[in-house]
C-alpha cells in the first residue's frame, strides 16, 4: 500500500546537514497495524508526517497506492491524502468553536458532500462511537478521552484506508488510553483499516501487528508481534 525508499530529511545548518531521517526505507501493506517507537527526537514523528504527506522528504522515493508521491504536485498530493488518509493527533486538535457533531461533519463539507448525506454519515458515526448524547457539546465540555474519541470519529468519517496517529494516547490516562487502543484494534481487524501509530508506550505498541524502532533518524529494528 505504501512504500518509502531511501527517504532522508535534513536541515542545512551552516555547511553541515543535520539529518532528522537518514536513508529510511519502509513498506507497509494494507491491513497492517504498525507501531513506530523511539525516543524523543529520533525522527519518528517526522517519519509519520512524511507518510501523511504533511511534510516532504529532502530526498528519496515515496509511493502511496501505487502513486509516486515524490513526483506529485502539492495539489495532487493533498487530494491523495484527503481521499485515503485520516489523522489522529495527540492534542486531539478539535476545532473549539464547533460542536462534536460539527467537528465530525467538517471533513465532509470540504469534500462537497450533500447536507442530507452528511447528516446520515455523521449520525452513523455518532451511533457507532456511542456519543449521540454529546453531539451538541463543545470540545471544552468533554474529557480528554471523549475528545480523542471525537478526533478518531472525525478521522474515520471520510472512510480512509489509512489512519495515521501521532501519540494518540499521550494526553490520556491509562484507562482512556486502553479504550482508544481497543478501538484501533477493532478498526484494524473488523474494518480492515490500515493503522500507523507513533507511540512512547511499550504497552500500546503491543496492540500493533508490527513494531518499528527508530533511533537517530534510522530504523533500528522491526519486528512482527
Amino acid at each position: 500500500m505504501l512504500s518509502l525508499k531511501n527517504i532522508s530529511k535534513y536541515y542545512q545548518a551552516g555547511g553541515n546537514k543535520t539529518y532528522v531521517l537518514n536513508n529510511v526505507s519502509l513498506d507497509v501493506d494494507a491491513g497492517e497495524f504498525v507501531s513506530i517507537m523511539g525516543p524523543s527526537g529520533s525522527g519518528k514523528s517526522t517519519l509519520l508526517n512524511i507518510i501523511g504527506m504533511l511534510d516532504e522528504p529532502s530526498e528519496g522515493y515515496h509511493y502511496f497506492m501505487k502513486e509516486a508521491v515524490h513526483q506529485l504536485k502539492e495539489k495532487a498530493r493533498s487530494a491523495l491524502y484527503k481521499e485515503y488518509i485520516g489523522f489522529v493527533f495527540q492534542a486531539y486538535h478539535l476545532i473549539d468553536e464547533l460542536t462534536v457533531y460539527e467537528n465530525i461533519e467538517t471533513p465532509l463539507i470540504y469534500q462537497n458532500i450533500k447536507s442530507s448525506e452528511r447528516k446520515a454519515l455523521v449520525a452513523d458515526m455518532l451511533d457507532r462511537f456511542q456519543i449521540v448524547g454529546k453531539k451538541d457539546l463543545f470540545p471544552a465540555q468533554l474529557s480528554g478521552g471523549q475528545q480523542q474519541l471525537v478526533g478518531i470519529a472525525r478521522a474515520l468519517i471520510t472512510k480512509p484506508r489509512v489512519i495515521l496517529a501521532d501519540e494518540p494516547t499521550g494526553n490520556l490516562n491509562s484507562k482512556q488510553g486502553e479504550e482508544i487502543m481497543e478501538l484501533f484494534r477493532k478498526l484494524n481487524k473488523e474494518d480492515k483499516v490500515t493503522i500507523i501509530q507513533v507511540t512512547h508506550s511499550e504497552k500500546n505498541a503491543e496492540y500493533g501487528t508490527r513494531i518499528i524502532n527508530v533511533l537517530d533518524g534510522k530504523i533500528d529494528s522491526s519486528r512482527n508481534v
Binding site: L54, S78, K82, F87, H93, L94, I95, T106, P107, Y110, Q111, R154, T158
Partner: peptide, 8 residues
C-alpha cells in the same frame, strides 16, 4: 491548520 489537514 486542522482545517487544512481535514481537507479544506
Amino acid at each position: 491548520g486542522v482545517r487544512k489537514v481535514l481537507g479544506a
